[in-house]
Design a protein around this nucleic acid. Sequence first.
DNA 1: ACTAATGATTGTAC
DNA 2: GTACAATCATTAGT
Length: 440
Amino acid sequence: MDDQPRLMHSSHGVGMAGHPGLAQHMQDGTGGADGEGRKQDIGDILQQIMTITDQSLDEAQARKHALNCHRMKPALFNVLCEIKEKTVLSIRGAQEEEPPDAQLMRLDNMLLAEGVSGPEKGGGSAAAAAAAAAAGGGGSDNSVEHSDYRAKLSQIRKIYHTELEKYEQACNEFTTHVMNLLREQSRTRPISPKEIERMVGIIHRKFSSIQMQLKQSTCEAVMILRSRFLDARRKRRNFNKQATEILNEYFYSHLSNPYPSEEAKEELAKKCSITVSQKLVDQRHLNNLKVSNWFGNKRIRYKKNIGKFQEEANMYAAKTAVSATNVSTHGSQANSPSTPNSAGSAGSFNMNSGDLFMSVQSLNGDSYQGAQVGANIQSQVDTLRHVISQTGGYSESLAASQIYSPQGINANGGWQDAPTPSSVTSPTEGPGSVHSDTSN
DNA sequence: ACTAATGATTGTAC
DNA sequence: GTACAATCATTAGT
């Protein structure tokens, strides 16, 4: 870095004298007078460079020292600094003081929210398992998934922190290096402390932009991880046995109208521990959607192949029937314990209880004389059909072949479109004993 | 490896 | 917006 004064000096002192051959060569080139002049300059510079090595180090040092000790040096230095400052400010003044970057803030927020940049949360997987257990209730199936996710996340976190540290260290090292360099140079060049400060600022900005890139790629990694592990769309998980049981119970006890209301869906989701591990979106809506999906699939698959589902239907029917009889013997309101929202869900279905009983009567051969049902509770109606099958002493196989005719489904298919659902399976005439739900 | 089951998605109709 | 039907994609049983 001591080349500068030497260079300046030699440009005056040596010139082209030492290498006439080169100068000659330069002059031989084509071009006008202007170009020739420039080539002359270039030749000068080349010459200087070549002669630098010829100079002795001692000589250079001596010259440097003489320059530094010159009595006019401080004054000249100050003037030059001032001029430089003014020029630099006029050039750069506008682009200084940029506002805090919104993008950077977003990235920071996200990293903080994902637990990447925040404080360490205990021992990684242990905390993850606890969190998963807390979130999923009885969801032992997705805790594995969660811990896997957490492990990957902490891996990202680790990489992020080491990289960040590396960058910070490099930044500091580079800053001190540049500062030292500039301080050193300030003895021979007009460099004010202010300029050093500004240079440090520039360096920091450069490094923070690198940091931002790091943050951005970390965010991307987290997003990819999220989508891989937590996006239920991609990674389908079967509901656990208990959840399927609860849903099936509801389905078969509402077979005439298997359309749970929003409230019912919510309750079912809660009961089944169907929870979506996404805090940012409307979780309740997603949970309900899962229940809706299940019912949609169930309806369509049941309708498509009723025979296949008969056994299952009888099983759940027996289950709910038992609980229903238990409830009724206790003299309480006729409401299936598994279907607390049944009353509300019976609204849209285009079939009344009377139709149901018509089918019930025909199915059993005899007309139904059994226990009276509590008015308009649709689930009770459904459930009682199986009470009949049980108290009537029908064998399982017989019940399977007869009881679960799709009383709610007409020939056109679909529960909803059935204008006279009973007509398909029960041509036998018979007035329904209950006509409570005719509001639809 | 093959297949059935099953949760999710998509397109269509109302 | 919802339901249905078809389909996709994954899981689980063999």
